[in-house]
């Protein structure tokens, strides 16, 4: 298979406290990898290291065989990596359309004229054409997050990183965002998804990666991971999402 991302011996620490310990991972083109694990296990940090938002202390992240590096080169690599954050992080003083256009115009030097039809097509696809000229504050959380996904797609990225993108959303809005992601996955987009939505993970993933304490504990196909996890820690983690039916005491 065609390898797109390779992480080798990645080490990251915050003030001497290790967050990622010797992480090794390869992602193939078109693969959808879902990263799960308890909070603080380093899964978000892993995503942030991939596009250089975090300084790393050791090891290497390479996209298309090239280390992501620093400075100008890092900026070039970042343009190939789309990232969506939990808090949407749209530009509040720009309309939806301007949010979509800013990066491709400035960072990729593409013409506004050719970008507008692309933006309109994307907005239509996720049902947000009517919000084209709205400001972010006029949108619901789910709408904001869909715009944030489109904003990343406008750069025509080779890989998309999703960092708990539904964690701040009300349940009924989670679905509309996840549907957009499912469709992207079907179209063959390479995706790394950090999420707590286990059912979604099962539906979208080619493989599931379980992390704990800064290490990759288990990588498996979703059927295997969710039905029959190989490690004790994964079993414990999955139990959190499982509820026993409450026994009723007939005497009372």
């Amino acid at each position: 298979m065609d390898e797109i991302l390779r992480i080798s011996n990645l080490t990251k620490s915050y003030g001497g406290e290790p967050v990622l310990r010797d992480v090794n991972l390869t992602v193939n083109r078109g693969e959808v990898l879902v990263v799960v694990g308890p909070s603080g296990c380093g899964k978000s940090t892993l995503l942030r290291c991939i596009n250089g938002l975090e300084e790393i202390q050791g090891g290497e992240v390479a996209l298309d065989g090239e280390p992501i590096g620093t400075g100008r080169h890092l900026n070039e690599v970042r343009r190939k990596i789309g990232m969506v954050f939990q808090s949407y992080d749209l530009f509040p003083h720009k309309t939806v359309l301007e949010n979509l256009l800013l990066a491709p115009i400035k960072a990729q030097k593409r013409a506004r004229r050719e970008l507008i039809p692309e933006a309109d097509a994307l907005l239509q696809r996720v049902g947000l054409s009517s919000k084209r000229d709205a400001f972010p504050r006029e949108l619901s959380g789910g709408q904001k997050q869909r715009v944030a996904i489109l904003r990343a797609l406008m750069m025509k990225p080779e890989i998309m990183l999703f960092d708990e993108v539904t964690a701040a959303l009300d349940p009924e809005m989670v679905r509309e965002v996840l549907d957009v992601m499912l469709e992207l996955a079907r179209e063959g987009m390479t995706m790394l998804i950090v999420t707590h939505e286990m059912q979604f993970a099962q539906a979208v993933a080619d493989s599931v990666l379980f992390m704990d304490e800064g290490k990759i504990i288990e990588i498996a196909a979703p059927d295997v991971f969710f039905k029959n996890p190989q490690t004790e820690r994964a079993k414990q983690f999955l139990n959190i999402f499982h509820f026993e039916k409450k026994e009723r005491n007939p005497e009372k």
């Binding site: 890092l74 900026n75 690599v77 970042r78 990596i81 992080d89 990066a103 400035k106 960072a107 904003r151």
Partner: peptide, 15 residues
């Protein structure tokens, strides 16, 4: 200014 907006700019490769 919202740090997230700045970070989003960085993540998209803005100088």
């Amino acid at each position: 200014v919202d740090r997230g907006a700045v970070e989003a700019g960085r993540a998209m490769g803005a100088s």
